[in-house]
Simulated scan of single mutants.
Amino acid sequence: MTTHKTGTREEWLAARLQLLNEEKDLTRCSDELAQRRQELPWVRIDKDYQFETEQGKASLADLFRGRSQLLVYHFMFGPDYQAGCPSCSSIADGFNGIAVHLANHDVMLWAVSRAPLAKLQAYKQRMGWTFPWASSVDGDFNFDYSASYTNEQQREGIEYNFRREAPFKERAGQPGGDGGAVAQFAAMCGTDTPAYTRERPGLSSFVLEDGVIYHAYSSYSRGVDGIWGMYQWLDRAPRGRNETGVWWRRHDEYPQLPESAGCCAQEKVAK
């Protein structure tokens, strides 16, 4: 028997209506925050960033592809990685379906990583993705937008998510600092913990107006939860995220689920 609170349909409806009011309050707050994001001052970009793409070398302006807005997902795939970050991969699984809609609403969506283009292309093919993905391997783009760090920065303590972290050696000595999920993900990417954590996830938005590119917004760490489609569904599931550790994998690494007995029974009835 379940240990979860149960009740009548009337009791459920009363509780649901109360929750609905709170959900509406949250939605209104979210709308207000979105408006404040759009009201942030734009910062002019004069630096000549260069990228490697499937179509050849490209500038930051080229990534707009005729649109006036550009969204960049900072995908954790460093030069030393042998595969993309599992968390970033889970997030990117949602890009294929929405990229075309954004492109037809004056917004280009790109993933950008520091790994060489050949690695990105091979991984993209493995994952079955179609969204555009650029390499910034020889440029400053990732470093300038707080998505990559040097060995020296890591030793001194990086500034990520607008806050300064302790030097890597000190962090490594803390519980979970170089073990647990971080070490597991590093191994899944075919690299070590220091190299893995020199890359960080995030998203940045840019706007092109009158031939000038401006940086409009960036968000990191839990700030990208909103675009992680898997969690938006889990937050509405009966047991929520229900996590005790790292459970997700790249979508081609899960064991094949057995056929449902119920489905088999239905098929037999149908026959």
Rank of each mutant, 00 (worst) to 15 (best):
Y145M: 06
D225F: 12
E199P: 00
G173W: 02
V212C: 07
T244N: 10
S148Q: 09
A186Y: 00
E152M: 06
A147P: 09
A181C: 00
Y220I: 05
F206T: 01
A186L: 00
E170T: 10
Y217P: 00
S204C: 06
A237R: 13
N242A: 14
D178I: 04
V182Y: 02
W233M: 11
E152N: 01
Y214E: 05
V224K: 11
S219E: 09
I158W: 07
Y160G: 08
G240L: 06
G223I: 06
N151Y: 06
T191L: 12
A216D: 04
Y145V: 03
R171V: 07
A183E: 07
S221C: 14
N161F: 06
E159N: 05
N151P: 07
P194V: 08
P201Q: 13
M230C: 12
D178E: 13
Q174D: 03
N161M: 03
E156N: 06
T150P: 01
Y220S: 08
G245V: 06
Y220R: 10
W248L: 09
N161L: 10
P201F: 11
F162S: 03
D225H: 10
A237Q: 15
E209G: 07
D192A: 03
V207I: 14
Y145W: 02
D235T: 10
A216L: 04
G177Y: 01
R164T: 05
E209H: 15
T191K: 03
R164L: 05
D178H: 09
T197L: 01
S205M: 02
D178S: 14
A183M: 02
Y220A: 02
N151F: 11
N242K: 14
P201K: 14
V224E: 03
D235V: 12
A183R: 13
R163L: 13
Y231G: 12
